[in-house]
Design a protein around this nucleic acid. Structure first.
Lengths: 182, 182
DNA sequence: TCGGGATTGAACACTCATGTTCAATAGCAT
DNA sequence: ATGCTATTGAACATGAGTGTTCAATCCCGA
């Protein structure tokens, strides 16, 4: 619980003090120090929690069940599950994006890479199945998905997009783009 | 010159000290203080410089010349000009993304909105011309373009993508997505 | 060569976040 | 009720960044 609030506070202000975090979480600053001895420990804990949630989302989307012979509808459904579940993680993704110092941590970097692997393999299989376009580098497909999902999250916080519509919009844009219907 | 370096330093570490910036820029800390009296003044100057460059890019892309009767090739060419010119602004866009406190500045927020307007109008005209798909909200088309362009910039810095290939990749993904070729 | 503005390093006071300690308190299980 | 643990506010020392001042120096045009 503290970790989610900390993610939000640090997202809104990367230089927020621990007193700010404690106040936002409704606990004393001493308590915060008891659980996370240093500022860096707190930042790492928030980051690992965020990655934990991403891992869960990827698991729950059951991308691994989609084989190289899957029908396009299956791929679409799996992607939809993934996007739908990623969107609520917006504040945590925002935190990871806005704390570039964390990129220097080897363990976090390794975990991030680990998260991308199943996604890229999924894309690769979907391409062989003809459900995603061949020729697109899997890492780029994954990057695009993340980028569009994050853009949707931003639009939601800006009040431009209804949360219920977000996943469909991202999926549609990712799959068919914004070009003319041929 | 100082502003570009400052953008890079603050992108790599949002909490960088003014001494860090001065050292990276190869000037004394006193000189930095002479030009930008306070830290906030420096941050605002960097942000305004970034927005200035974005405005120039948008001008130079000559989106306004593309009317509601433009051919798809014209629209594609204009978008290509825009994306191509945006990519070198990567560090500055990164700076704007990673300094959320700046969002609180009314003037900056107003300028950001002003920048989006011509883009959204361009999208709107291109949709009427049938060169972009109707039904996609113009603000979302613009958001998607930004998101994909930024993703490409990240890929470049990660060494995954050749700078020369970036614009074509973004344009292709934005227009036709990563779904199967129908 | 000379003069003036810009640049610089050093030093200073000030503020603020951090991390620590400690005694008081609250909640909870026995 | 009793004892234990977690929580809390207060206070403190420390370190780091900020903004200021000033004298020394550099650079460039006159």
């Amino acid at each position: 619980m503290i970790l989610e609030i900390a993610a939000e506070v640090f997202s809104a202000n990367a230089a927020a003090s621990l007193a700010d975090v404690a106040a936002a979480a409704g606990v004393g600053r001493t308590t915060l120090h008891n659980r996370f001895p240093t500022r860096e420990a707190l930042l790492l804990a928030v980051a690992h929690d965020a990655l934990d949630r991403c891992a869960t989302v990827i698991q729950d989307a059951r991308l691994a069940e989609v084989g190289a012979d899957a029908a396009p509808e299956e791929v679409r459904a799996a992607l939809s599950r993934f996007i739908e579940a990623m969107i609520p993680l917006g504040p945590r993704i925002e935190f990871l994006l806005r704390q570039p110092e964390l990129d220097l941590d080897k363990e976090l970097a390794a975990r991030t890479d680990q998260l991308d692997t199943p996604l890229e393999e999924f894309v690769s299989r979907a391409q062989r199945a003809g459900a995603l376009r061949a020729g697109v580098p899997p890492w780029w497909a994954v990057s695009s998905l993340y980028a569009l999902t994050y853009a949707a999250w931003e639009a939601i916080t800006a009040g431009l997009l209804a949360p219920r519509d977000a996943a469909a919009l991202v999926l549609d844009t990712a799959l068919t783009g914004i070009g003319p219907t041929p």
